[in-house]
Design a binder for these strands. Structure first.
Length: 885
RNA sequence: GGGCGGGUAGCUCAGUUGGGAGAGCGCCGGCCUUACAAGCCGGAGGUCACAGGUUCAAGCCCUGUUCCGCCUACCA
């Protein structure tokens, strides 16, 4: 016991520490390698090893933990595979910064020493995020924790690389790629973030070689003109027909450029003439390819102009832009400058402006892989939930481009390719070759580039399970049951796992993909360090406890909608946790021993009703979790626990509990035990800590709640069937109590004043029900007396309330304010008329009667009958009141 | 340029084959009733963005308009 039952408020801190340690000690998160059990598996989206837990992780892992804990309660053998990602660029940046503080840099250190330094950093700080996930309650199988740079996973990476290369699906070549000068590496197209920037469109005159005027070209990046190797016009553009075989002179460089014709050129844009810079623009590169133009690289990998830039050599690319404009202006070749808003690519890691650069890189040929990945979703082998993301997935897969996978950094999987220094032979192999297969020389140099981090995470669902070995783990747990992830990495990660999983395993990596939303701040803005609106999950956990936080996330995780997070919301659910704590405290005061034998025949109405409700609540929770409707499950539990279990059931059974002893008390205690027991289990996936704490204090339980049976799977549970009779009778009783309370509230009668109530009804079954449960009505509406009689003389000094089939008179002798009662009744009648109006209109419509389905018509007719009766009764009481005033 | 999501109570949002507009918070009134004042009881509050259409019936389906957000794209 780590929290005192006498505490009026739940204190999460010790409870959380205590039970998490207990679960780990007992090995309760461990998956069992036994293929006879029903298996359920999830691989964690591996957080960056440099990462700290943010709201996105918190949501993502809470949802996964809810699913895993739920499936365990349902009896599944669950594998939740944890691990971290080596995050090449990000981690290298972190360690480089650390080196900088020590006055060193990686080049001084050398590659080997630098890699050692990164590993050292990883050993020291790399488990931070894992520990934070534990604070969140994550029930991962920690003993299987993986890291993308582990020996096993690295072998999988090599195997995949070599295989794809041999299959012709990986190639090396000189192409335009996105170059980040800060990170000093190539980036995949996906890793470039586009942003609209207010820039300028510069119109530059390129004089015709023959001296007759000039062609005017427009550009947003004038510095690239230094590398121009042609001017292109559309073949049909009559303005340039006379330029047949003419050339222009490239200003500043005095280089003659051919005028070529290419359909790519948009006649309508600018002057219809396009400068072509094959080394620094992807489209120009393609044009250059078509027309066999030379490529001149004028911007170097360091962001400075190369020797090819002539007198501009050594200038920074942006300084060069200014210098070029000035020089052009001086020569009178700058036609004009217009303001121009256009999209500019930035590095997703460091936000530096990306430069398209000609470079030798490695690529994955994605088309053949994507086709199968599309089919798998098409035919439902993998379901994407919510379905709306299917379109996005298809859209990207259908337009997929080859994937640049080489990175010019040091931290990562070095590409297993070697070049023979003697003959230039390229060798791709699992292990470093001893000699060149072509010339038998042994001077072989390994490719210095490493692979894109996403290349290794694309293998995550099977590399973590031991592939390329044929392990039992793979056999039992692949394909995984579901992948839970945010939409922001749908392409980066999900799509690539699909491609790799299908290609290498012959089977999709996951049956379901559940795509959740983003966590934003309370104004709906994206949380970011620069906006200063980041809420730290650990701060929230410290302040409000993990269970409140998790429940908040689940309660707001509606499909397709972002979550706006604020402390106020978490605070609200902390109240809920506290409510549960106190309800349990109350129950435990009365439960002294195991009460799990219930004789259903002897149950009271409230007992039967709460068991019936519990039955539908457990079905609803199961249904909701089976369909990833986390917010529905949370709402059902919240409403049941607070408003049905606490507000009605516990209040209703208090008199029974305060009795000395007897069969009634015995069976109520048994029901109370079961309802508490089952509710804790239903709640456990969302609130693992408080439920375990209460479970451990509940007499008659053994072991961890993690091993308990879900109510609907539990043979012994008394909440196995709905009880419509109890539901309907309880409905009548609560309606009567609410009716009396309403009178009390509206007439401002103090709760301390006991009331006298007369109920008139001609329905003998209603009479019987009321008589049978008169104590409940008396207690919960605080009555001095309750009389049930056939309709007859109406008590004079009384306020009225109507329930279906009966009229309630609250005697207010001496205190009734007839005018106030009249107003109250008028208000009631008005409310009723607003309901009745559309119902009458419907029934007066012959088309409705004829065309609507029978049951619908009957339902409306029945409603009309009920409303009419209530209205009639209220009206007669109003008339009577009016006579008395 | 293309695509997606959203507009429902003061705020934040649920609302799954079309058939009774809901919750939480906030607000108003009354209560320290022996689990809980982090509580209990009662109450007020909505032209479901706008305009058409389909239907006996529309918050939900169709068309258009408008506002907000996001993703995506090689117009220099």
């Amino acid at each position: 016991m780590s929290s005192n039952l006498l505490d009026k408020a739940y204190e999460p801190h010790n409870v959380e520490r205590h039970w998490y340690a207990y679960w780990e000690d007992q090995d309760l998160f461990a998956a069992i390698e036994d293929n006879k059990l029903k298996s359920y598996s999830i691989v964690i989206p591996p957080p960056n090893v440099t990462g700290v837990l943010h709201m996105g992780h918190a949501l993502n892992n809470t949802l996964q933990d809810v699913l895993c804990r739920y499936r365990r309660l349902r009896g599944d053998n669950v594998l939740w595979m944890p691990g971290t990602d080596h995050a090449g660029i990000a981690t290298q940046n972190v360690v480089e910064k650390q080196l900088a503080l020590e006055g060193a840099d990686r080049h001084q250190l050398g590659r080997e020493k630098f890699i050692e330094a990164v590993w050292a950093w990883k050993e020291k700080f790399g488990s931070a995020i894992i520990n934070q996930l534990k604070r969140l309650g994550a029930s991962c199988d920690w003993k299987r924790e993986r890291f993308t740079m582990d020996a096993g996973l690295s072998r999988a990476v090599r195997k995949v690389f070599v295989t794809l290369y041999e299959q012709g699906l990986i190639y090396r070549g000189d192409y335009i790629i996105n170059w980040c000068h800060r990170c000093h590496t190539a980036l995949a197209d996906l890793e470039v973030e586009h942003e609209d920037i207010d820039g300028h469109l510069y119109y530059i005159r390129y004089p015709f070689e023959n001296g007759n005027g000039a062609a005017v070209v427009a550009t947003t990046r004038p510095e690239t003109m230094l590398g121009d190797t042609a001017v292109a016009v559309h073949p049909d553009d009559s303005r340039y027909h006379h330029t047949e075989s003419e050339r222009v002179i490239l200003p500043l460089m005095n280089r003659p450029l051919p005028i070529i014709k290419d359909k790519y050129v948009d006649v309508a844009f600018g002057t219809g003439a396009l400068k072509v810079t094959p080394a620094h623009d992807p489209n120009d590169f393609e044009i250059g390819d078509r027309h066999a133009l030379p490529s001149i690289k004028v911007i170097g990998d360091d962001g400075r102009m190369t020797a090819e830039a002539g007198k501009f050599e050594g200038l920074d690319r942006f300084e060069c832009r200014k210098a070029v404009i000035e020089a052009l202006d001086q020569e009178g070749l700058l036609e004009k400058i217009e303001p121009y808003r256009h999209s500019v690519g930035h590095c997703y890691r460091c936000k530096t402006v990306i430069e398209p650069n000609l470079s030798r890189q490695w690529f994955v040929r994605t088309k053949p892989l994507a086709e199968k990945a599309i089919t798998a979703v098409d035919n439902g082998n993998t379901r994407i939930i919510p379905e709306t993301w299917k379109n996005t997935y298809y859209e990207w897969m259908n337009n997929i481009k080859d994937w640049c996978i080489s990175r010019q950094i040091w931290w990562g999987h070095q590409i297993p390719a070697w070049t023979c220094e003697a003959c230039g032979q390229l060798i791709v192999a699992m292990e470093a070759p001893k000699e060149c297969p072509a010339c038998r020389q042994s001077k072989l140099v390994q490719e210095s580039d490493v692979l894109d981090t996403w290349f290794s995470s694309a293998l995550w669902p099977f590399s973590t399970m031991g592939w390329p070995e044929k392990t039992p783990l793979l056999k039992i747990f692949y394909p995984t049951s579901v992948l839970v992830t945010g939409f922001d990495i749908l392409f980066f990660w999900v799509a690539r796992m699909m491609m790799m999983g299908i290609h290498f395993m012959g089977e999709v990596p996951f049956k379901d993909v559940y795509v959740h939303a983003l966590v934003r701040d309370e104004d709906g803005k994206k949380m970011s360090k620069s906006s200063g609106n980041v809420i730290d999950p650990l701060t929230i956990i410290e302040k409000y406890g993990t269970d409140s936080f998790r429940f908040t996330l689940a309660a707001f995780a509606a499909q397709g909608r972002d979550i706006k997070m604020s402390e106020k919301r978490v605070e609200g659910y902390r109240h809920f946790v506290n409510k549960i704590w106190n309800a349990a405290r109350f129950a435990l005061m009365h439960l002294e021993k195991d009460r799990n034998r219930v004789n259903l025949g002897q149950l009271g109405l409230a007992d039967r009703w709460i068991l019936s409700r519990l039955h539908s609540v457990s079905s609803a929770v199961a249904e909701a979790l089976d369909t990833y409707r986390f917010n529905d499950a949370a709402a059902v539990l919240y409403n049941f626990i607070w408003h049905e279990f606490c507000d009605w059931y516990l209040e209703a059974i208090k008199p029974v509990l305060y009795q000395k002893k007897g069969p009634e008390k015995e069976s109520t205690l048994a029901v109370l035990w079961w309802v508490l027991r089952d509710t804790l289990v239903l709640l456990h996936p969302f609130m693992p800590f408080v439920t375990e704490e209460i479970w451990q204090q509940l007499p008659g339980t053994s072991g961890s709640i993690m091993k308990a049976a879900f109510p609907s799977d539990n043979k012994d549970s008394p909440s196995k069937v709905p009880d419509p009779e109890a539901a309907s009778k309880m409905g009548l009783i609560t309606a009567i109590i609410t009716g009396v309370r309403n009178v009390r509230g509206e007439m401002h009668i103090a709760p301390s004043q006991m009331l006298k109530v007369i109920i008139q009804t001609e329905d003998s079954s209603i009479q019987e029900t009321i008589e049978a449960h008169r104590e409940m009505i008396i207690n919960l509406s605080r009555l001095r007396s309750l009389a049930v009689e056939a309709p007859g003389a109406k008590p004079a000094a009384a306020a009225t309330s109507i329930v279906d089939g009966a009229m309630i008179f609250v005697s207010l002798e001496g205190i009734i304010d007839f005018e106030k009662e009249g107003q109250r009744l008028e208000k009631e009648i008005n409310k009723l008329m607003n309901e009745l109006d559309p119902v009458r209109k419907k029934l007066n419509n012959a088309n409705f009667i004829n065309k609507a389905p029978g049951p619908v018509v009957e339902k409306v007719k029945d409603k009309q009958r009920r409303l009419e009766e209530r209205r009639r009764k209220l009206q007669s009481n109003l008339d009577r009141i009016k006579q008395l005033t």
